[in-house]
Simulated assay, not measured.
Amino acid sequence: MKKIIMFAVLAVAMAFAVSCAKEEGKKVDVEKVVKAPVEAAKVPDAEKPVAEIPADPNTEYVVGKSIYTGWAPWWYIEESGIKAKWEAKYGIKIKFKQFDYVPSILAYSNVDGAVHACVMTNMDALAMPALGGIDSEVIIVGDYSNGNDGLVARQVSKVSELAGHNIYLVDGSVSIFLVYRALMMEGNGLKVSDLTFKNVTLDSQIQNVYTSDPEVIAATWNPILMGIMNEPNSKLLFDSSKIPGEILDLMVVKTDAPTALKKALVGMWYDAMADMTAQGPKRQETIQALARSQQNRLEEYEQQLKTTRMYYTPADAVAFTKAPELIKTMDMIRAFYFDFGLLPGATSKDQLGISFPDGTVLGNKDNVKIRFVTTYMQLAADGKL
């Protein structure tokens, strides 16, 4: 029988449908949410070195992955031999397991602990595992979406024309945030209650729904976004290039997971980044492998990389993670999710804590569930992994 906490996590996947009902007759001042001042506490020694957490030699540590441009390197890492290299270095067994996107995060969020690490966005880390009570560290900030997430239609040409239309998106996913940001920036006063949302369970369903009905409007991400944009008469109403640095693509690991797992994953990642930026045939070979993993042609994947702001070096990723803009972004996101009913059961946006490398904590410092750390990326930058 599944544990109680899993029911709470599964409830998050349905929260978007619930929130739409809540929005009827309720007007939320979106601009006020975005511009509200950041209220945060400081906790000293936020990244003070901690004792090594040993790995169990009899455990195979499971890492969830899903199809997305910025996460394609995890396929390459396995097939290229990079994974085996870092497993041997740290004496740990690691299994990469592919899921659809939301199911991957639900598996990570399950209290049974069967998935130890998972790729996800910053807002989904808040809305699923953190809300479900899972204490996590963000050990890699891999990129931000700079056009990889989009809102696409055939029957309308502007966000302000969306009233009365059906918008399809993956239930409980980052796409909800994209729609809200589109409304705030280009909706001309359009409210959530003016829109009709239709939820699908799996990201792989979005393209089928879109292609089967010319009336469908879809919010999704690459490579699915590229696929539906290739349909005749498709128009890109809004994309994440208009909100740079907000939709972050992360590797999230349970805080109590072995230190060797965290170090090995970071080492693997930056080996792959080095191959992606190598000169000559090595880069071509690497990008070809990445394209295959996402079921793309080479030119398609290259185009998607142009809408992905990759942090190819650990030094760049550390600098982004330490910048004050990240705190402002996460404060905006938690306000959105609370005010729009996407944190079911939470009594305030401060119920959960989010910590940052400088010691800042948004929310409850005694209930921190998301920890942005630079410890392992800094080791990679210093050549000390």
Rank of each mutant, 00 (worst) to 15 (best):
residue 265 L to K: 04
residue 119 V to D: 08
residue 367 N to R: 11
residue 242 K to T: 04
residue 225 L to V: 06
residue 23 E to I: 04
residue 24 E to M: 13
residue 267 G to P: 07
residue 146 N to M: 09
residue 239 D to P: 01
residue 111 V to R: 10
residue 23 E to S: 15
residue 58 N to K: 14
residue 230 N to T: 11
residue 92 I to C: 03
residue 338 F to E: 09
residue 21 A to S: 09
residue 298 L to V: 13
residue 75 W to T: 06
residue 84 A to G: 01
residue 261 L to Y: 01
residue 380 A to G: 06
residue 150 G to H: 07
residue 66 S to L: 02
residue 336 F to W: 10
residue 361 V to E: 05
residue 73 P to C: 05
residue 174 V to K: 00
residue 156 V to M: 09
residue 151 L to I: 15
residue 325 E to L: 14
residue 61 Y to A: 01
residue 312 Y to F: 11
residue 245 G to C: 07
residue 134 I to M: 03
residue 269 W to K: 07
residue 247 I to W: 01
residue 110 N to S: 14
residue 328 K to C: 00
residue 383 G to W: 10
residue 295 Q to R: 09
residue 135 D to V: 15
residue 6 M to Y: 15
residue 171 D to A: 14
residue 49 P to I: 13
residue 294 Q to G: 02
residue 153 A to E: 08
residue 78 E to H: 05
residue 56 D to I: 06
residue 283 R to Y: 03
residue 117 A to T: 08
residue 127 A to P: 06
residue 158 K to V: 04
residue 186 E to G: 02
residue 24 E to Y: 12
residue 45 D to W: 02
residue 135 D to T: 14
residue 114 A to R: 10
residue 182 A to D: 04
residue 191 K to C: 01
residue 47 E to Q: 11
residue 199 N to V: 03
residue 311 Y to Q: 07
residue 43 V to Y: 00
residue 174 V to L: 02
residue 251 M to Q: 12
residue 231 E to T: 15
residue 325 E to P: 00
residue 255 T to F: 08
residue 188 N to D: 15
residue 139 I to T: 08
residue 275 D to E: 12
residue 16 F to W: 05
residue 77 I to T: 05
residue 146 N to H: 13
residue 114 A to Q: 13
residue 375 T to V: 12
residue 135 D to L: 06
residue 189 G to T: 06
residue 310 M to G: 02
residue 166 N to C: 08
residue 196 T to I: 13
residue 84 A to M: 00
residue 173 S to C: 06
residue 212 S to N: 13
residue 103 P to H: 09
residue 352 L to W: 10
residue 332 M to E: 08
residue 46 A to R: 02
residue 11 A to R: 07
residue 366 D to R: 05
residue 243 I to C: 01
residue 262 K to L: 02
residue 57 P to R: 09
residue 169 L to S: 03
residue 264 A to E: 04
residue 323 A to I: 07
residue 193 S to F: 01
residue 144 Y to P: 01
residue 352 L to Q: 09
residue 52 E to M: 02
residue 128 M to C: 07
residue 172 G to M: 08
residue 90 Y to I: 08
residue 232 P to F: 00
residue 156 V to H: 08
residue 177 F to C: 03
residue 214 P to I: 11
